[in-house]
């Protein structure tokens, strides 16, 4: 199951970056999001999975695709000139980023725990399923400050967007 969802995610992501067509790329991105939602489910976090589907693939990608359709760019314009340097720099950045991500994941506490548990040959503790109540508790008890700051930031962004689009206030 994990392999299935991981494959969906990775294939979606790769297809998105390779796709010439903007809309199809967007749909591949939706596929990636759905794969990630599946991974969340595997991590026994159905709330995150549901929110991932609702927010990312349900709302944000729809808006992105909507905008693309509105701009009506059906055909991909060919690149005016190939840019080899950018390409190499991009590849290098990806490699560096990937290496760091790999190190961080491999060194994370959860993974170490799993490894040690597996080594100790003890029964793996079944992870407790996340539910909405717990999410709410976490947000409003432990991460209240962060939550408020994010809320404020989004509000500011919204006001800014309105101010930019309205000609006369």
């Amino acid at each position: 199951m994990f392999l299935l969802f991981a494959l969906i995610t990775i294939i979606g992501a790769l297809a998105m970056s390779q796709q010439k067509n903007v809309i199809v790329a967007g749909l591949c991105m939706v596929l990636t999001f759905l794969g990630v939602a599946g991974l969340f489910l595997m991590l026994s976090n159905p709330v995150a999975a549901a929110l991932q589907v609702i927010v990312y693939s349900g709302a944000i990608m729809v808006l992105v695709l909507f905008t693309i359709m509105l701009l009506n760019s059906h055909e991909e314009e060919p690149a005016i000139q190939s840019r080899p340097i950018q390409r190499w720099v991009g590849a290098l950045l990806i490699a560096v980023f990937g290496a760091f991500a790999f190190r961080i994941v491999m060194g994370s506490k959860a993974l170490v725990d799993i490894n040690t548990l597996a080594d100790a040959n003890t029964a793996v503790r079944p992870m407790e399923a996340m539910n909405l109540a717990k999410v709410g508790e976490e947000i409003f008890r432990h991460y209240l400050l962060g939550f408020e700051i994010v809320g404020l930031l989004l509000l500011a962004a919204m006001v800014g967007a309105v101010a930019l689009t309205k000609k006369e206030l």
């Binding site: 749909l27 976090n45 549901a50 693939s57 349900g58 729809v62 399923a129 996340m130």
Partner: peptide, 17 residues
């Protein structure tokens, strides 16, 4: 199952595709 009523909302969100 932890999804509850979020599930139909999520499916409804995907339905637009």
């Amino acid at each position: 199952n932890g999804m509850g009523m979020l599930y139909p909302l999520a499916i409804g969100a995907v339905a637009v595709y």
